[in-house]
């Protein structure tokens, strides 16, 4: 997902102190945990890792789409894409703010992103080669994000939950604008339809990877689910995503690049092929097609923006001094 393979450090129930047990009981009752309240160190650390990675994904996620803003086919599509990418900056901000309530600063999180100590979602390490990719990204990538973010609105940590509620309100526009691009292209010339099919072919498996490794290989899920910072298992969400997406592809007249794909009446869901997990682990390790480019773009933006941040600070200090003198 936007947060993948988050390492979670908790205490087993039988080893919990009375305070930890009381904390777990609050979560079990569905109470929200707020910033200044007592929480186990593991809960705090795991949340920082997860919210931080989620925030990083929002802002790095701007890059593959930002790539197409100046080349959008119409002024309207350009304005829409610009608005979508701007929303993602907002999503990053909501999430960094939520992480900051846990006692980490935004600059610390940036540093960890830039040094490679923290990750962002694997999906943003794939290139966006044609305009149809803007359709596939909105439809599939934002679509997969929605699958994960909707249940997270009920997460136990108050600021995270409120950030998710805000994000979910904006996310549906993202998916629809993507699908609308796909509809236009699928109904267009044969060449345009081919582009749409090609985009689906390239983004299908990376989108499935967004949900993280299969449950049997997902070591930290259990603790995170007990803490309600992970609401569903990876496989559950992936299945749900496939079930919803396949009919949408059919409507477009495009085919999902999976020959094994078949409706399974018994489980009321599709059987589908797993993505190539060795590819996923390579991308996570930094060896995806665009890892280096993405990180470089982030670091450059941060370094080359330094004079601007400092200039604004200097202006604020000067204005404050002038106000003091006038009083």
């Amino acid at each position: 997902m936007y947060a993948q393979m988050i390492k979670s450090e908790g205490t087993k129930r039988e080893d919990m102190s009375p305070q930890e047990l009381a904390f777990q009981a609050r979560i079990d009752r569905g109470e929200k945990i707020e910033p200044k309240e007592w929480m186990p160190e593991g809960y705090r650390k795991t949340l920082i890792r997860q919210i931080g990675q989620h925030a990083h994904s929002e802002i790095v996620g701007q890059l593959p789409e930002g790539n197409w803003i100046t080349r959008a086919p119409t002024l309207e599509r350009k304005a829409i894409l610009l608005a979508k990418v701007q929303d993602e900056a907002g999503h990053g901000l909501y999430l960094y703010s939520a992480a900051e309530t846990l006692g980490v600063s935004r600059d610390e999180l940036f540093e960890k992103l830039h040094s490679g100590a923290m990750k962002y979602s694997s999906i943003f390490n794939y290139p966006t080669l044609t305009w149809a990719d803007m359709g596939a990204v909105g439809w599939l990538v934002d679509g997969a994000a929605i699958m994960n973010q909707v249940p997270l609105q009920r997460t136990s940590y108050g600021p995270y939950s409120r950030a998710m509620i805000r994000i979910c309100k904006e996310e549906s526009f993202h998916q629809r604008q993507g699908y609308s691009i796909m509809m236009t292209m699928a109904k267009g010339t044969p060449a345009q339809k081919d582009m749409a099919q090609d985009a689906l072919n390239r983004f299908w498996y990376p989108a499935l990877m967004m949900f993280g490794p299969s449950d049997k290989d997902s070591v930290h899920s259990e603790q995170s689910m007990a803490w309600k910072i992970k609401m569903n298992t990876n496989d559950e969400l992936r299945q749900k995503f496939v079930n919803e997406t396949v009919p949408q592809a059919e409507y477009l007249g495009l085919s999902v690049p999976d020959e094994t794909l078949a409706w399974n009446e018994e489980k009321q869901g599709y059987d589908f092929a797993e993505p190539d997990w060795s590819e996923f682990f390579e991308v996570i390790k930094g060896n995806g097609p665009c890892n280096r480019e993405r990180l470089e773009a982030r670091v450059t933006a941060w370094d080359e923006g330094a004079w601007f941040r400092e200039g604004l600070s200097a202006h604020a200090e000067k204005a404050a001094a002038a106000r003091m003198a006038a009083e």
Partner: peptide, 11 residues
């Protein structure tokens, strides 16, 4: 509604 960082009130 939330929080943000800025150098001064105007920003």
């Amino acid at each position: 509604v939330g929080s943000l960082h800025a150098p001064d009130a105007e920003m």
